[in-house]
């Protein structure tokens, strides 16, 4: 047990005290339970190794969460740089043939059936809201890794664009196109899964 200024580290009880919290934090961001478990384990082990550097300025959970956050960003970066999920040339433009017409003079107009059908996406009751959250999770799982990384960092972690670009090694223009495409796909998925 390491003792510090205001807070102490108690690794024997980490799983019991913070296991669910950290797992939840990770699974919401990486959308993969098995990957989230691995990240939690890596976080605890990294915490143990770095315990000498724990100054006690933050609570134990906050400190572990900051380690986990770093690990999640590393996992985004790994996914982002993997060959299978590389950011393709056709993904650097606003145009997406899955959603818009390509023939002149209607190029760029919504394809029939791919534009918004309903005015609202949101559920009305509280019971429905819990179900809707599951659909958000499902739709995020369906995003390509690089889009999911940018979308999670922006929408869940509320990171600023500069940080996301720096962490993922992309330009602001790439980021805006990625966020646009992620939002397009999320909207489309939610409307299909939730409203139909």
């Amino acid at each position: 047990m390491s003792e510090t200024n205001d807070h102490i580290l108690d690794p024997k009880h980490w799983v019991e005290k913070y296991g669910d919290y950290l797992f939840n934090y990770a699974v919401v961001r990486v959308n993969d339970a098995s990957k989230a478990e691995d990240l939690v384990q890596e976080t605890f082990l990294a915490g143990l190794k770095a315990s000498d550097r724990f100054r006690g300025e933050s609570a134990e959970r906050t400190w572990l969460t900051s380690i986990l956050r770093r690990k999640i960003i590393d996992s985004y970066r790994k996914k982002y740089s993997s060959r299978e999920s590389s950011f393709g040339e056709n993904e650097q433009t606003v145009f997406d043939a899955d959603f818009y017409r390509s023939e002149e003079p209607f190029r760029g107009h919504w394809l029939e059936g791919r534009g918004p059908n309903s005015y609202s996406l949101l559920p009305e009751g509280e019971l429905e809201q819990a179900e809707f959250m599951e659909f958000i999770k499902l739709c995020m799982e369906g995003l390509k890794p690089q889009l999911a990384a940018a979308f999670s960092m922006k929408m869940i972690d509320e990171e600023d664009s500069e940080t996301i670009c720096k962490e993922l090694g992309i330009t602001p223009s790439n980021l805006w196109v990625m966020l646009h495409r992620a939002r397009l796909k999320m909207r489309d998925c939610l409307e299909k899964k939730w409203l139909q």
Binding site: V15, Y21, N24, V28, A33, S120, L122, I136, M155, L190
Partner: peptide
């Protein structure tokens, strides 16, 4: 309109997964 709702939903999603309302368990 739906983009505004998506932002709102993502805020709810993030809060929904805070420790008090933890929906995923190790």
């Amino acid at each position: 309109h739906q983009m505004g709702e998506l932002n709102h939903s993502m805020n709810i999603y993030r809060d929904h997964c805070s420790d008090e309302k933890c929906t995923h368990h190790l």
